[in-house]
Design a protein around this nucleic acid. Sequence first.
DNA 1: CTTAGGG
DNA 2: CCCTAAG
Length: 662
Amino acid sequence: MVQKKSLDNRSPGLRVPVIPRAPRSARKRSLHKNTADGRNICAIELLACLAGKLLQETESSASNTASEGNDQLSLPKNALQDQFQGEDKSLKSEGQGSCEDGLFILEQASEDNQQKDFLKRSPEVESGALWDRSSVYTNSSCLEKENSDDKSVIISKSGFVVSGDLNSDKLVAVKEQVPDETFLKDSMADCAETPCFPNAFSSRQNIGMVLDRKDDDENFPRFYKSSSTKLKPYKPSSHIVNGRIRKLSTSKNTKVAPLRKDTKPSKSGTGRKVSNQKRRPFYSRERYQQHGFLQQRRKVFDGSCIVTSDGVLSSESDSTSHQIGVNGETMVSSLGLGDRASFEAKNPQVKISIKSFKIPELSIDVPETATVGSLKRTIMEAVTTILGGGLHVGVLLRGKKIHDDNRTLLQTGISSKENLDTLGFILESSLTQSHPSSITPQDSTCTLPCHIPEQLKGSLDKPVSDSEACDSASNPANLTGTCNDIVDSTHELTVSSNTDNATDKPLSDSRALVPVPEINPEPLAIVPANQKGKHPELSHRRIRRPFSVSEVEALVQAVEQLGTGRWRDVKLRAFENADHRTYVDLKDKWKTLVHTASIAPQQRRGEPVPQDLLDRVLSAHSYWSQHQSKQNGKASGRMAQTPPKMIKANAVPENVITDIGG
DNA sequence: CTTAGGG
DNA sequence: CCCTAAG
């Protein structure tokens, strides 16, 4: 068909190309809640937190005077206020000069001691209750690039640290308002929905990054206003669930929709949709407020929670499980286990609590003329990039990296007490890990230790269970059950997950799926943080996910039975659980299969598809070409049995091929 | 939202 | 995979 590409004359209701990620992300969201990809996601969780912080920061800056006592910036109010303004100013006016001051505090939460206190008193931390005292900052990280003509500012060195203590006197708050607040929100929303620790930890999360609260802030409207032109085109999405697809999507992890109800962009078409799952607002901010700091946001998923800083990453607690504490500094873990572990279960749970993760070193060059806002976005982008997919977890035991992902913890020795003392985890950046020789984790600048508080065992006098899911935290006995029950039951594997699960791909492959075990992860599209490239398209493009043989098999079979004109049915029949495969994808795949089958084997590329499958493809294709599956509709059932198979049986109809002509 | 096709 | 035009 002739297609018009004229974009000039667009009618209202188009996408909003202007907004970097909004459109696609929205679409992606719906499809990508795949349960399976949790693994690579912890990173995303972190990102979500970062995003949240960033956003908060933004908020607070927008309403710095207005929000008293509210939960905005978690910085010790007045204490830093002046400093903020001063620094802020200098930062703006003098450009990067002030960077040397130290860090960019996106947010700081509570005082350290408080934090610890809290920890000590919270045995429940391990069971899911958590707090987040996240702080993202780069310390001593702003350096002026002297050699550079453009005097770019490099933010790197220590990179971002999620957690840690802050020296309040060295804080530099970046308060510039970020024009793209929507973007931030979006990012957050995106991140928020990513499941974390799919299996071991419950995945379905109900993150409640609260964004909506801005509604009451007069300053915000400006943001929206400025970007309103972008948003306007969107037609208010009807929150109406749309039939079938909707059903599919909701069956998986539900999406978290953009907070602004009125500005929620919605794109229809590919089957990626956004459902308006209301976020669960965080409650208990008051608790923090009474301590003098502003509310802190926390992320809570059913059963498992991730603390973004000084926190705990935990799975459901289990009285019989081993607990592994990883000390970030030494990358050593401590074991706190129930004595009965060995008796209790055949498969004791190994509990891992991670205090915090650092984000790999980040280098960002930005022209001095860049705005703080753009800086933020750039950083966000970089962080997103890293966390989105360029990051994977490394497991160290006795300082040695464990590469065999297939071994069980037991086999690896991670379940024995002695070894637990030397267990460590690191985050490695695939993107920066260009150095082939990153054998020694400790030396690699790309590796990051994670921290696990040792104070986990403290006694709790102040219940802090936060998630509704884990509300029973006060009752440890129930906690486990509660959280476990909540473990997302929607984890589903794609039909083919086992066959071609990309085994770890070369790190060099920027699109590489994060080396995640078992299931095809659904990482964010990774885009190198090249400030140079600045791909406009950096925007969005789903990652490429070659069909595995098993998927092809499933597809072929479905088509044999249903015909080629009922992709939706095919999808439902064979890929209902493969969120990332839309009917369009299936249709496209079929198209390519037909083509592939019709060309010489030598010309085929990619993972080879068994010839017999291709034969079936041709058979089915020819059959349905003549039988118009769609028209007949009903007949499908009956026809299905006879046609394809018969044909297939006898032959590789070469004639058929030709007449089809691809 | 689905299909069907071109890009 | 993306994007559109058409039902």
